[in-house]
């Protein structure tokens, strides 16, 4: 009885409910669904053949290859970093801990363009390490290593931010129990710590991967825009657009969107599995 009264008190009148529903749906339609439709309809406007040709063009293929390569390097590295950071900052309390957490957030809070410029100031001809690099004929910026570094920097926090609160919340009791039962450090990590954060870790990796493939600003600054060599997929889409090659630009964009959609689907599955209410 009492509960029913509370429920009724919390419920808005029917017209208001409908209005809010329509507003929300309209908003989602206008800002999320419509752009998605535009990307795909523009991409396939001149048929599947033109789409395929735009995707299989040598420059596009090289952009796809570079994007995948960058993700393949960046995601594992940031996963390892995220795990160690999560472990150190989540399971232990020490002086300077909150400062370190703030530091990890740095790439989130500064503009990607600045992130790119940082690497020019470090590794450019006139940067701190410029003269040494030039003397040893090492090319960092305006080539693949620079793109990897910039992406690494921008996607740095994703896994760590996911794991720190999770590991913090879980505490160290289970690990301590394992240790007292005679397990080694590595065994404890593999059998206890890792399974406990499995879903959070996966979620962080997915987000990290999505950003690594989609990053534009920082990569644009350090890329040098050399076709077939230092263009990632987002940069390639921009180039095509600037060359009045709209269908091809949207074809490349649709590929990126597909990647994003796959990421979202995987993320949803992870969330469903992660949800204790759905777990049997």
């Amino acid at each position: 009885m009492e509960q029913e009264r509370y429920r009724r008190a919390l419920r808005a009148p029917r017209p208001v409910n409908i209005l809010i529903g329509f507003l929300a749906l309209g908003f989602i339609g206008l800002f999320l669904v419509l752009p998605l439709i535009v990307v795909f309809s523009e991409a396939f406007r001149q048929g599947l053949q033109v789409w395929w040709k735009s995707i299989s063009d040598p420059d596009a293929l090289s952009a796809i290859r570079l994007t995948l390569l960058v993700a393949l390097i960046v995601v594992p590295l940031n996963t390892i970093f995220g795990l160690t950071a999560g472990w150190a900052l989540g399971k232990f309390r020490f002086k300077g801990r909150s400062f370190l957490i703030t530091l990890i957030d740095l790439p989130f809070s500064i503009s990607p363009v600045i992130s790119g410029l940082i690497f020019i100031l470090l590794f450019g001809t006139y940067g701190w390490f410029g003269p040494w690099l030039t003397a040893h004929h090492i090319q960092i910026i305006f080539s693949v290593p620079g793109i990897v570094l910039a992406t690494l920097f921008v996607t740095f926090p994703f896994v760590a931010r996911e794991l720190i609160p999770l590991m913090s919340e879980q505490g160290t009791e289970e690990e301590q129990a394992a240790l007292t039962l005679g397990a080694g450090g590595w065994q404890t990590f593999r059998r206890i710590t890792l399974p406990n954060v499995k879903w959070g870790l996966l979620y962080g990796i997915i987000l990290c991967n999505a950003r690594a493939m989609g990053e534009f600003g920082a990569v644009s600054v350090v890329s040098g825009h050399i076709r077939g060599e230092t263009n990632t997929l987002p940069l390639h889409a921009e180039i095509l657009y600037n060359e009045y090659n709209f269908t091809a630009a949207f074809a490349v964009a649709s590929l990126l969107t597909l990647l994003a959609l796959v990421t979202l689907i995987v993320k949803t599955i992870v969330e469903m599995k992660n949800d204790p209410r759905r777990r049997s």
Partner: peptide, 8 residues
């Protein structure tokens, strides 16, 4: 600017 910064 990019050439000055090392674009080869």
């Amino acid at each position: 600017r990019a050439v000055m910064d090392g674009l080869p």
